[in-house]
């Protein structure tokens, strides 16, 4: 009784704070929770003018269509394939770079390198794809100029599917490897120096210290980054595949986001595209929960 009373007294005392939160509530409700309700359109034959309630309910028909559609399986395969390769390439790259930076003796050299490798993160994908297409151009690009100077022939990097996948991976590493080191460098700087002193006294070499002090110390951070990528297994942001892609490589470059854009917004097949989007969100969420559960069981720690 008194407990609820004091809670209410606190609410009244803090009424101005709740007032400050109003625009924040409004934002999350309108642009996050209303769309979560609106996704029910995936179960209707959606009509923009009739709205969600006025559109006929069709149950799982859109999902049935989705699982019978070859295009859907192609974009599903591409999304998962590109993300799984990223898990082996883009996920470890910042960790390795952070560990290398951590071994640098000269502070000024370290800071200079850090400053340079952070930069590409702030360029847009339009600019990055423009840079990459220029650099790899078979006629005017610097990479093919080097290849030719060694007697090779120009490589059509952007139009051969296998090369395109490699370039897709490389572009992600190029843009974000530096940025990705920040979280690891923060974790490294938070490690207890006493552990290193103790290891030194025990005669541990640099390699042994890396293996037995550094890596175990930042494992929680690695785990967090890993779980977050697993929770995005179905997500590839629109810009990168759309801007690097071209008609010649559509068989590997078309992913869920570009497919939803094309089917939903260009061909205005709203309910079908919403169904694809819902499938994506649900699979992501299930993967996140499963990976988190496994991580809690095996390592005793997770995101939540």
């Amino acid at each position: 009784m008194t407990l609820t009373e004091s809670r209410w007294r606190k609410v009244i005392r803090d009424r101005h704070l709740y007032l400050l939160l109003l625009p924040v509530f409004a934002y999350y409700i309108v642009f996050h929770f209303v769309p979560m309700y609106g996704v029910l359109m995936a179960f209707t034959d959606f009509n923009v003018f009739a709205g969600l309630r006025g559109s006929p309910w069709v149950g799982l028909e859109n999902f049935r269509m989705m699982f019978r559609n070859d295009d859907f399986f192609i974009v599903l395969r591409n999304t998962v394939l590109l993300n799984v390769i990223s898990l082996f390439v883009a996920f470890p790259a910042p960790l390795v770079l952070a560990l290398l930076l951590n071994e640098v003796r000269n502070r000024r050299f370290k800071r200079t390198i850090q400053g340079i490798v952070y930069l590409p993160h702030f360029l847009s994908w339009v600019v990055v794809s423009g840079l990459i297409i220029s650099v790899l151009s078979p006629s005017s690009g610097i990479v093919n100029a080097v290849i030719r100077s060694f007697g090779g022939e120009s490589v059509y990097f952007m139009t051969e599917p296998a090369w395109w996948i490699a370039i897709y991976q490389f572009s992600g590493v190029w843009k974000d490897v530096g940025w990705g080191t920040i979280i690891y460098l923060a974790a490294l700087s938070a490690l207890d120096p006493n552990l290193y002193d103790a290891a030194m006294i025990d005669g541990a070499s640099r390699w042994q210290r890396l293996k037995h002090v550094t890596l175990p110390g930042i494992t929680p951070t690695i785990l967090v980054v890993f779980l977050l990528s697993v929770g995005n297994v179905m997500t590839i942001s629109f810009d990168r595949p759309f801007l690097l892609g071209n008609p010649m490589v559509l068989e590997v470059a078309d992913v869920i986001s570009t497919y939803v854009y094309r089917v939903g917004l260009l061909n205005v097949d709203y309910s079908y595209a919403a169904a694809v989007g819902l499938f994506q969100s649900v699979v992501n969420f299930v993967f996140l929960l499963t990976a988190n559960w496994l991580s809690n069981r095996i390592k005793g720690q997770g995101l939540f």
Binding site: H32, M36, M41, V48, G264, L265, A274, G277, S281
Partner: peptide
């Protein structure tokens, strides 16, 4: 968890 592109577009 997100409602996805199309429902946000509708909003």
């Amino acid at each position: 968890f997100s409602g996805g592109l199309i429902p946000i577009f509708m909003v």
